[in-house]
């Protein structure tokens, strides 16, 4: 077995008086594909957002590629360079073209030349199957295309790990497939993935392991077959009853 690239140990997170994470433990090895699921408000988004420092944790430790996230701004910046993130609402920069969206971070935070960044941008646009949209503005694209651009934007940083927070929830049903396909292709290429999703088809297709979160705690962790066919905890059973 390869070494762990994400180590989450006893993480607690409070929003005011509300506890979002209540001692989460999770280890992800290189090349592993994790799907995080759970009822609404269970802390899934919070967990992945903690993994690249978008939220600060109150206690516990998160280590990404041997870097401790509590090590101040420089540590966070280093982690973010090797961790890509895709949001539910895409969060593309509406004032920049698709190509500029893709080139911004490689030039500014990795220090690539404009030319190299552009080459890289085209490469990843091809990878998400929309090279012809490079000159358009995000709002001129469909939701599915926008989300694929967002994926390409994260890939342009050539991260070791990709985090997805419900990448298909804001999409119309007919667009979900194109995004799911792109993510599944990434999974096949051996990238480490952590994906929050309600898309059980995606979970079955790509996950090595499914993590079930409820009320800020990891309730169950199992490979898809075991998870769907023989859930151990009652809460998991209830959850599966509701969504399947």
């Amino acid at each position: 077995m390869s070494e762990p690239v994400i180590k989450v140990e006893q993480v607690h997170k409070w929003f005011g008086s509300h506890q979002a994470l209540a001692g989460v433990d999770l280890t992800v090895n290189a090349g592993e594909r994790i799907v995080v699921c759970g009822p609404s408000g269970s802390g899934k988004s919070t967990l992945v957002r903690c993994m690249n420092g978008l939220e600060t944790i109150d206690s516990g430790a998160i280590t990404i590629n041997q870097i401790d996230l509590s090590g101040g701004l420089t540590a966070i910046e280093q982690v973010r360079k090797s961790v890509g993130m895709v949001f539910q609402q895409f969060n593309l920069f509406p004032h920049l073209t698709v190509e500029e969206n893709l080139c911004l971070a490689p030039t500014r935070s990795l220090g690539l030349s404009a030319y190299a960044a552009k080459e890289r941008a085209l490469k990843y646009l091809e990878r998400v199957h929309i090279p012809e949209q490079a000159a358009k503005f995000p709002l001129q694209l469909s939701g599915g295309q926008q989300q694929r651009v967002a994926i390409a934007r994260a890939l342009c940083m050539e991260p070791k790990i990709m985090l997805f927070d419900e990448p298909t929830s804001a999409l119309d049903p007919e667009m979900i497939k194109e995004v799911v396909d792109v993510i599944a292709e990434l999974a096949e290429d051996g990238m480490t993935l952590v994906c929050v999703t309600h898309e059980m088809g995606l979970a079955r297709a790509m996950a090595d392991r499914i993590v079930f979160l409820d009320e800020g705690l990891v309730v169950e962790e199992a490979p898809p077959s075991a998870f769907f066919n023989a859930p151990k905890s009652d809460r998991t059973k209830q959850f599966l009853c509701k969504i399947l």
Binding site: L54, R80, G84, M85, Q89, N91, F93, A105, R108, M157
Partner: peptide
């Protein structure tokens, strides 16, 4: 807010 988070996630200073 999402714009700022996206910029952060891309490690922009």
């Amino acid at each position: 807010r999402g714009q700022i988070e996206a910029a952060d996630a891309l490690a922009l200073s």
